[in-house]
Every structure is written in structure tokens, then in C-alpha cells.
């Protein structure tokens, strides 16, 4: 089984040499655009090291988006194999999300370089970062399981998910600092932070870049509220996995 994950990977990277470089270039270019627009033209609040702050948010979001989008289409995309060979289907979803994870690690290296250039001082809280990555990954994996199984039945899912992700991108404090929302409405900000991705991104920024970052604990005045989005992650993961397991038997017939 492990062999399969590795092979699928190889395929992804050896498939095209450019694809490998693109996975680094894409978030960087997106960052460049957003930095010009929101860092230079429209100033949304004052945060120290805003460029790195922005980049980290984009990198984490890109990871989440890539894992769910590619996970979603993974089963249908591998339909030819599923129809002809019997093997555990979760491997397909797992391998696509793991390759997104590898991209993330590479992108984080770039973030580190930017951090060094910007002169961000190191916090010991940086060691918390893996926890937030695991959180986002688990969330994405749970969603990918659910969506990929659903996509076999209803192909509309990919379109719907595209829009959901678009909306979620703006509903997550990536390009704007959360303080902007807080100044308008404390409740809205609290609500936004119930999104596991938002919570994880803010916590990651807090631990890695600047303690100015508004997090769940600073919003509610109590860090235990972070258990709610984490609970959402666990719930989605369990539900997604169960749904996938129930339906995977029939993938070969329906895909």
C-alpha cells in the first residue's frame, strides 16, 4: 500500500518537470499580486511583517485548497484504475492529499526564507506550527474523503466546491487582518474564527510571525474556545471517512 502512495507521488512529480516548479511559483505569484494590491495600494490595518504574514496565510490556504480540490476529483480521475483493479480506494485520496502536503513543506521553506529576509525574530511558539498543519491537513483529508465520494454520484460537486472555496477564501482572514473585522463587529470576528482553517492560520501566524495576530484566545479571552474549530475538524474527519467507507464499495460501478 505504501508502495502505491509513493508511486502515485512519483507520477505526480515525474509527470512534468514544470509542474513541480509551478507548485512553488503559483502561491508566490498569487502572493505578489495580493501584496501589491493589499500591501501597497489598499492598506488594511497595520501589522508588522505584513508581507510574511500574508505569505504564510496564502501558503496555508493554498495547501487547504489544493488538498480538497485534488482530493475531490481524485476518485473520478482514477476511475480507469478503479474499474479494473481491486485495491483500497482511500489510498488514492490519501496520496493526492499527501502530495499537497509535500508542496506545503516546500512552500514553507520559502516562507522561512522570507522570514529571514524580513528579519522576523524567532519565537519558541514556532514549534506549535506542526499542530496547526496537522489540523488543516486532517480537516482537508476529511473533506476530501467526503467530497470525492460525493463527486462519484454527483459531478456538480466540483463546481459547487469551487464557489464554496471562493467564498471561504474571503471569509478567512488571509488578505485582510482580522482586526479589520473586530473593529466592525466582535461577534462576526468570533464567528469567522470558528472556521478551522481561519483559526489554524491565525494561530500559525501568531506562533511564527507576530504575537500581534488576533487568535481565538485573544478574541474570546480564553484559549479553550479553540477546541470548537478543532472539534469541527474531528467531526468532519470522522463523518467524511465513514461516508467514504460506506460508498467506496460501489465506486467501480458508478465512477
Amino acid at each position: 500500500m505504501r508502495e502505491l502512495v509513493i508511486t502515485d507521488f512519483k507520477l505526480r512529480y515525474q509527470g512534468s518537470l514544470l509542474g513541480y516548479a509551478w507548485s512553488l511559483l503559483k502561491p508566490l505569484l498569487l502572493f505578489a499580486i495580493l501584496y501589491v494590491v493589499f500591501g501597497m495600494l489598499i492598506k488594511l490595518g497595520t501589522i508588522e511583517y505584513f508581507s510574511v504574514y500574508l505569505l504564510l496565510g496564502i501558503v496555508l490556504w493554498t495547501f487547504f485548497a489544493e488538498a480538497t480540490n485534488q482530493g475531490l476529483s481524485s476518485i473520478v480521475g482514477r476511475g480507469d484504475v478503479i474499474r479494473k483493479i481491486s485495491f483500497p480506494k482511500y489510498i488514492i485520496v490519501l496520496s493526492t492529499t499527501i502530495s499537497a502536503l509535500i508542496n506545503l513543506v516546500l512552500n514553507l521553506l520559502i516562507v522561512t526564507i522570507f522570514m529571514l529576509i524580513s528579519g522576523v525574530s524567532f519565537h519558541t511558539s514556532a514549534f506549535m506550527l506542526p499542530i496547526y498543519i496537522v489540523e488543516i491537513y486532517t480537516f482537508a483529508l476529511g473533506l476530501a474523503f467526503f467530497l470525492s465520494a460525493l463527486n462519484v454520484k454527483y459531478r456538480d460537486i466540483s463546481h459547487i466546491w469551487e464557489i464554496v472555496m471562493q467564498a471561504a477564501f474571503y471569509a478567512t482572514p488571509i488578505i485582510y487582518p482580522l482586526s479589520l473585522v473586530i473593529s466592525k463587529s466582535q461577534t462576526a470576528a468570533q464567528l469567522l474564527m470558528m472556521n478551522p482553517v481561519a483559526q489554524a492560520i491565525q494561530d500559525a501566524r501568531y506562533s511564527l510571525i507576530t504575537h500581534e495576530t488576533a487568535t481565538v484566545s485573544s478574541l474570546f479571552g480564553n484559549g479553550y474556545f479553540a477546541l470548537i474549530p478543532m472539534g469541527v475538524v474531528v467531526l468532519i474527519f470522522i463523518a467524511g471517512t465513514l461516508y467514504f467507507k460506506k460508498n467506496s464499495k460501489y465506486f467501480a460501478e458508478n465512477v
Binding site: 512519483k10 507520477l11 515525474q14 509527470g15 512534468s16 480507469d80 484504475v81 483493479i85
Partner: peptide, 21 residues
């Protein structure tokens, strides 16, 4: 099964072999 046109023959042998267990 799983043959990929973008991979070399050698890589495909290993990929297909993995799929066959």
C-alpha cells in the same frame, strides 16, 4: 492498468507492478 503515457517504460513497469501488488 494505470499506465501513464508521460512516464518512461521503466517507470510504468514499476507503477503497474505496484498496482498488481
Amino acid at each position: 492498468v494505470g499506465f501513464n503515457p508521460e512516464l518512461t517504460g521503466r517507470e510504468n513497469v514499476f507503477l503497474n507492478g505496484a498496482l498488481l501488488g
